[in-house]
């Protein structure tokens, strides 16, 4: 019976070969997988400069750039609702508050650790600045501020600007701006430092 050991050895070889996990990493590229094919080693390719995807020709400069011709728009190119403001607050807290602070006073946690220069949105100059200018700065950055256009889609950028406008109003509000029904809930002793989130 010489066939039995031979069969056993072949079976063992087959079992060993069967353990290769080739389906574990198949040849397709997953997100951000490195590539040996392209010289820069990236499998994710940037579109050739000037490429326009179908349906993405961004002709509406008011919405995509915040400007009409040479001047910045000063009205929101999309409707602003309560949902917009809530979305804007969420996105502001994620992307802007580390430097500009939750109140928009330019004293975020990164500023407390040494970053210089974030503006205080409550300056008169910035209250008068058209919304299109804000949009342009968020998109392309300004001074020490890096561009946020690649991180925040345009509708969220507009929502953030709407929320900045709300913040600006909130820091200048008087009792007359509060609906009468909500007034009894305000505690006068809180003062300026009593703002809680």
């Amino acid at each position: 019976m010489r066939a039995a050991p031979l069969a056993a050895v072949s079976l063992a070889c087959l079992a060993a070969v069967g353990c290769r996990q080739t389906m574990d990493t198949d040849p397709k590229y997953e997100a951000m997988e490195p590539s040996s094919f392209f010289s820069d080693g990236r499998s994710a390719r940037a579109p050739v400069a000037g490429t326009v995807a179908r349906g993405e020709l961004k002709l509406d400069t008011a919405y995509y750039e915040g400007r009409n011709g040479d001047s910045f728009v000063d009205t929101f190119p999309a409707p602003v609702t309560k949902a917009t403001l809530l979305r804007g607050r969420q996105r502001y807290d994620i992307f802007c508050s580390p430097c500009h602070g939750l109140l928009g006073d330019g004293n975020g946690v990164v500023v407390q650790r040494g970053l210089r220069g974030p503006v205080n949105f409550h300056e008169d100059r910035l209250k008068r600045t058209p919304v299109g200018y804000y949009f342009q700065v968020i998109t392309n950055g300004r001074g020490g501020m890096y561009p946020y256009g690649y991180r925040i889609p345009p509708d969220d950028r507009w929502a953030i600007i709407a929320y900045i406008r709300a913040l600006q109003l909130s820091q200048d509000a008087t009792l007359n701006d509060v609906p009468p029904a909500a007034r009894p809930g305000l505690n006068a002793s809180h003062g300026e430092s009593g703002v809680e989130r």
């Binding site: 951000m32 580390p98 990164v110 040494g114 020490g144 890096y146 991180r151």
Partner: peptide, 19 residues
């Protein structure tokens, strides 16, 4: 999206260009 996304170096530099 399916992938959570890893930040490009510019995101790190948003703060670390200064601190």
């Amino acid at each position: 999206s399916a992938f959570a996304g890893l930040p490009p170096t510019e995101t790190c530099m948003s703060c670390h260009s200064q601190i």
